[in-house]
């Protein structure tokens, strides 16, 4: 077990981070990474912008009481170049549905953040039996002209960390090459994650998910970082209004768009309570 300092704002606290079990499933002919850790009822996580080039403390919090299963989305770290064969919305949704099944998440609770949130919502809408309870962290998928989401791709490189996290260091930590990483392939993999998200969401992030929200029967928790600079907070209300099943909105103080990076404890606690 590896000990690492936790959030820099709590320098006194140390959290335990250990590596998850890694396996691979074949999705559309592409070897796709699935992380698994912990024991207890299953809960899945579909990552947001940037994907998961490394295991994060948020997943450890979930793994304390649950079996956490984290399949990589196509093109995201661990997902190879799977995005390159997904040409439209239907391709993405079907791939995600298959991934949920291949990862052993059928009928389990499902969490999706940002990009992964839009896809988790689709799966819950179209295959109600696949998802028990749903938690969405600032999901993409809707677009309101009067209040558009930020354009995550039209950014100067140095503006990205503060756009995605309340504390930019949390993003930098996610993306910093670990010791021994391939100095050529690592940056390419990070760009690929951004490309995969763009392939699915370019240019506005509007997947017309609004049309399918009424099909979501699963009880849905909507988590929003108080300092989300990508997805306006009002979108939480739009989701809540559109979803057919019961829903609840939870605002996370001190968190940005990727709330699970900024406030892993708070976000995990809320999700664990919702899916208990």
């Amino acid at each position: 077990m590896l000990l690492r300092p936790a959030h820099p704002s709590n320098p006194g606290v140390r959290v335990s981070v250990s590596d998850p079990e890694v396996s691979f499933v074949e999705l559309n002919g592409v070897q796709t990474r699935v992380w698994r850790k912990g024991s207890g009822p299953r809960i899945g996580f579909l990552a947001g912008l940037g994907g998961l080039p490394r295991w994060i403390p948020f997943l450890d919090r979930l793994a304390e009481t649950r079996t956490v299963i984290v399949p990589s989305l196509p093109g995201f770290p661990g997902g190879g170049r799977g995005h390159a064969q997904l040409d439209d919305q239907l391709d993405w949704v079907v791939a995600t549905r298959r991934l949920v099944g291949l990862a052993g998440l059928d009928g389990a609770d499902l969490v999706g953040s940002s990009v992964g949130g839009a896809l988790a919502a689709e799966v819950a809408a179209l295959w109600p039996e696949a998802v028990r309870r749903l938690a969405l962290i600032a999901p993409f998928g809707l677009y309101e002209e009067a209040e558009p989401p930020a354009d995550p791709w039209a950014q100067r490189a140095d503006a990205v960390p503060a756009l995605l996290c309340a504390d930019p260091e949390n993003w930098r930590r996610l993306k910093a090459p670990p010791e021994g990483a391939n100095s050529i392939e690592w940056p390419i993999e990070q760009t690929r994650a951004s490309e995969a998200a763009a392939r699915f969401l370019w240019p506005l992030g509007n997947t017309r998910l609004a049309k399918r929200l009424p099909l979501i029967q699963a009880p849905t928790l909507l988590l929003w970082g108080e300092q989300d600079r990508v997805m306006p907070r009002s979108y939480a209300d739009r989701f809540a209004k559109g979803i057919a099943g019961p829903s609840e909105i939870r605002i996370i103080p001190g968190a940005g768009h990727l709330a699970e990076l900024d406030q892993p404890d708070e976000v995990a606690k809320a999700i664990l309570a919702w899916t208990a």
Binding site: R81, W153, A154, Q155, R156, A157, I188, T191, R192, S194, E195, A197, A198, R199
Partner: peptide
């Protein structure tokens, strides 16, 4: 610079 590098424009 915001317009410089939409991801995927430059091949891997």
């Amino acid at each position: 610079g915001r317009w410089a590098t939409p991801p995927g424009y430059v091949t891997e």
